[in-house]
Amino acid sequence: MRLILASGSPRRRQLLTDLGLTYELRLREVEESFPPQLRRAEIAEYLARHKAGAYRADLASDELLLTADTIVCLGDDVLNKPADAAEARAMLGRLQGQTHQVYTGVCLLPGDGRPPVVFSDETTVHFRALSPAEIAFYVATYQPLDKAGAYGAQDWLGLVGIDRLEGSYFTVMGLPTHRVWPALAAFQVGRLTQ
């Protein structure tokens, strides 16, 4: 099957490329709200499936759509993408010196009518205590507005702020590659050849 990526995330594109996969990129705006009764992994899976639904009618029978969504949770509070620099600073102020969870939900939707495959992966992230100056520098210098929780593990703040991870680093980046690869292989996408 031909792989279609429906994600504006440059990190997801890079991870698929690093896996040696070829894919077509398709983008459209999809509302990212979720029912309030959902919690943690349920939210990430719901959002990934919801995004896929927006593309269902356009898929050819030989296409496999990949959508994903990453959320950051501090307790039961979901820290989405910040609306502005002030909200980014506030989020990072809450995360500093704390342990939080990152969930990435993935939906693989085949265009041939088979049901979607939906799963999520969780990583626990430990942040050291950050100074207000470090947080202000990061928000002013990098681009935290397109990232759940206002940070990227691969960015400066991740380099200086993450003490340790329990789980996959790539889940925090936005695509649990250790789970995506075998799921794609089941659809005969990215098969290794001799």
Rank of each mutant, 00 (worst) to 15 (best):
L3Y: 07
I4N: 13
A6Q: 06
P10G: 08
R11C: 14
R12G: 11
Q14W: 06
L16W: 13
T17G: 14
T17M: 12
T17N: 14
D18M: 15
D18I: 11
V30Q: 04
L38P: 07
R40P: 04
A41S: 13
A41K: 08
I43F: 02
I43H: 03
Y46Q: 00
L47Y: 05
A48D: 05
R49A: 13
G53F: 05
D62H: 10
E63T: 08
L64H: 01
L66Y: 04
T67G: 08
T70I: 06
C73K: 10
L74R: 08
L74N: 02
D76A: 12
N80M: 13
N80K: 15
P82C: 05
A86G: 00
A86Y: 00
E87S: 07
M91R: 03
G93N: 08
R94A: 14
Q96R: 14
H100S: 10
H100M: 09
V102C: 00
V106A: 01
L108R: 05
P115Y: 07
F119D: 03
D121E: 15
D121W: 00
D121M: 01
E122C: 15
H126A: 13
H126Y: 12
R128P: 06
I135T: 04
Y142G: 00
K147I: 09
A150R: 12
A153E: 08
I162Y: 03
I162S: 03
I162E: 03
P176Y: 11
V180N: 05
W181T: 13
A183H: 02
L192N: 14
